[in-house]
């Protein structure tokens, strides 16, 4: 929940003061007390928790702070699927693509969710910036399959009908 609230404010704060990355993230990076390659992943995780994605400017700042070439920061960011290179909508919807969900029809549920939000092809974020749909390999909540995660909340026993309704409840 905490996570969600934070990301709600992020785009605004960035616009307001015109920082290259959000002010909060810049503070996180500047206030980071370690140096060296082993801290690239933890620091990027902190920034993404704040901003929802990793921007080019973030990579520059992280590189400078930790003393690691930006090419290597980029290499790490692109290797791990956890890091996103594009901004996300207000709500990050993560339908599970695990085995238990698959055998209970998750593929069609994801199609329904995308259809419901009018997301076509590779587009994953709605035009009004409310929702980003990014399937995840497995949420480990297989007992309630099919499941999805929105923010830090997990919703279980999904079907083609209720998935859309859950999303509608979050619409503002």
């Amino acid at each position: 929940m905490k996570n969600k609230k934070k990301s709600e404010g992020k785009i605004k704060s960035k616009d307001k003061c015109g920082c290259a990355v959000s002010c909060e993230s810049e503070e996180i990076i500047k206030g980071f007390s370690h140096q060296g390659k082993q801290y690239v992943i933890p620091l990027l995780q902190k920034v993404q928790e704040q901003d929802g994605y990793i921007s080019e400017e973030t990579m520059d700042l992280v590189s400078e702070k930790l003393g690691v070439p930006v090419s290597q920061v980029y290499a790490i960011t692109t290797f791990y699927s956890y890091f996103r290179l594009q901004p996300i909508g207000k709500h990050l919807v993560r339908p599970c693509r695990g085995t238990a969900c698959h055998v209970k029809g998750s593929k069609r549920i994801i199609e329904k969710i995308k259809e419901h939000l009018d997301l076509k092809g590779d587009i994953d974020t709605t035009a009004d910036n409310q929702f980003t749909v990014a399937p995840v390999a497995c949420l480990g909540t297989c007992g309630l399959a099919p499941v999805m995660m929105i923010g830090n909340n997990v919703y279980g026993n999904l079907n083609e009908e209720n998935a859309g309704k859950i999303i509608d409840r979050l619409k503002s």
């Binding site: 693509r97 695990g98 085995t99 390999a137 497995c138 480990g140 297989c142």
Partner: peptide
């Protein structure tokens, strides 16, 4: 790092 889809023993 329990990455197997369909497994959650460690979690």
């Amino acid at each position: 790092d329990e990455g197997d889809p369909g497994a959650f023993m460690n979690r």
